[in-house]
Design a protein around this nucleic acid. Structure first.
Lengths: 206, 206, 206, 206
DNA sequence: CATGAATGAGCCTTCATTCAT
DNA sequence: CATGAATGAAGGCTCATTCAT
């Protein structure tokens, strides 16, 4: 059960010991991969930057795709729970909207490279089927996250969402992706625009 | 003037003869690249699938990036002019919206692989600066296209757009990208959803 | 007869017209080759730098070796006659020695790249037999040149050379080569050392 | 300390194990390189002739230059110590001179290809800066070697050298290079001339 | 468990050379 | 005569993966 949440879904559940080591290694590798992108990062880069041995990566992961899939999965699991507290503690719809927007803007800047990696992987999945399951699982994770915000926002507003979960995710994802690109192109008010836009977009779901 | 439109802006305009050959070769290469993706396609693949020699690709293109940039550029130039007729001939806002939606849905299916390639390239640009100029130029092209539709739609409605060009592009692009992914995942009503959604989204710009 | 002097010996004498064009083309190519070295210069570099077409080079030369051999040959023919005036006009052995040293030092600096190319080619000949004849012919040319100086020096001194032509050439060539390397390594007094050393070395032949 | 002597100075000293393997591989590669020359030998040639894999060459060497630099360095380190015994054991200046000349003549024939490679590499350095450090280090090695002979010769003669180390090296190097070329051109008495000439040249340093 | 040496297919690119015009 | 488009073999190099230790 725990494994089902913290490990990429495409892999059979292993012993706890192995699963834990996989998480550890994937976490160590994440920064290097996020920094350089999927196609531009070799296992030797990862080994060199993390101090890990080349052999251990292949011992715990079937191949490069397995490692990167696991790393991105962990990164996004954490990302999807970033808004839990805001949803749980906000007392008004306005508070929720503000909190959500602020969190989005914050992670846009703070976890810039990891978000970029996620979009990179999702893109690769359009060509290779290998990542398909991981990508679909993460999309599900993020859809649930967005929907928990939208649903709670409607609830606090005493209203009902006028969009379906998949639509809501598509809206916010598209906007976030756009903001990320702008931020990477050094558009200075990209985070602020995301923050404000998210509030407005949340309101438009009612 | 013609060259400025049909050739990637990053390359100095050569003689007409060379420019024409570049277009020809890039067009021939496009299918192979679109089929397999940027990172997964080698020049040998292109040569083999098109019947071209390996040498000729390097004779007319500085490197792989130059070739792929040119191919995608041509593909999107054509794509951006797909809606010109609808904009020019529609007599009512409803006709324009329907025509636009129908065209979007049609190209989603017909040019599926080329759209996917464009998103692939745009994604690569987040890691390599090499494609930056081409990507920005294409983004501009598509922004103009979207805006020509939105502006005409408002005009025919006797109204004014409530969004700016960049925002309008972001909306439609996000939606199209999403629809493309759905379509590639074999969601059966992805084209139809795109068609209907586009009409609604166009209306929401007023 | 003229051809025998101005064209590389390995090539059959052709019509005057062709021979003249070969000289012209080789002269145009010389600077580019000398600048970058034998192995690092492609025919396309030469074509690009000189404004010549790729085809014409292959029309007048059998291959790259033929072109480069001809270019170096011409360069060294000129070089070997640089001292004729000094030999012919000097009235004393001291004047001859001084003139010879000065000329050597001058060409060391002025024709630095061409001398380097000559040593490059002579070196290549140790591995490829293709240049063998040209190299041997040039060595003969230079031996004659050195000997004409040494013999005249002895004559003006009322003495007889104590070395044979080949030895004299070996001495001066080794010294010149050494000075060239020093000059290329930016040793500031390499030309001056060559000038002075040549005078001394000339005296030591008696 | 040992490493500092047996490995090319341009490379950081790695672990002993790696350094040892580098020496081993470079030694294996040497024959092939020496046989065909720097520019005419590909890594594939080396791999094929030695039975090594292509990958291992890139595993232990940064690039082709690194491999060849190491190989030549090793070859010349050995070469520079060939005269140590003669210098150490000779009891008279005549014995030293004879021993030195004999050794020179012997290596001229026995290690012909390796000497040719060294001159090839030194020549390349006139065009590429990549080998500069290795070449300078080897020149230093050989200068020391020549000087140890000259100095000891003077000592045994109860005299003092009239030349400086760099001059002595230039003299013997030029003469040796000349003899090598003659030998490669199948001049039959090149070794004998070298032997005799070296004795005379050694005497002329006093 | 863990290592890292070793592999070789595959990549992009360069280049002398050919040949239709 | 002269051109330059076209060729494809060969080059250096990268990399995921295997495997003996």
């Amino acid at each position: 059960m725990v494994d089902a949440v913290v490990n990429a879904p495409s892999r059979a559940v292993r012993t706890d010991r192995v699963a834990a080591r996989r998480r550890e290694l994937a976490a160590a590798a994440l920064e290097t991969i996020a920094d350089r992108g999927f196609a531009n990062t070799g296992l030797r880069d990862i080994a060199a930057h993390t101090g890990l041995s080349l052999g251990i990566l292949h011992y715990y992961f079937d191949d490069k795709d397995d490692l990167i899939g696991q790393a991105v999965w962990q990164s996004k699991v954490e990302c999807a729970h970033r808004y839990d507290a805001v949803v749980a503690t906000s007392l008004t719809s306005a508070e929720l909207a503000e909190g959500f927007g602020a969190e989005l803007a914050a992670t846009l800047v703070a976890d810039c490279a990891e978000h970029r990696l996620w979009y990179d992987l999702r893109n690769q999945a359009l060509f290779q089927n290998g990542f398909r399951d991981t990508i679909i699982a993460i999309d599900g994770l993020l859809t649930d996250m967005v929907w928990s915000v939208v649903a709670r926002y409607a609830e606090l507003s005493g209203s009902t969402p006028q969009v379906r979960p998949a639509e809501a995710y598509a809206m916010f994802d598209g906007f976030f992706r756009n903001s990320l690109i702008a931020h990477l192109r050094d558009v200075p008010d990209a985070p602020e625009n995301l923050r404000i836009g998210a509030v407005r977009m949340l309101h438009s779901t009612l």
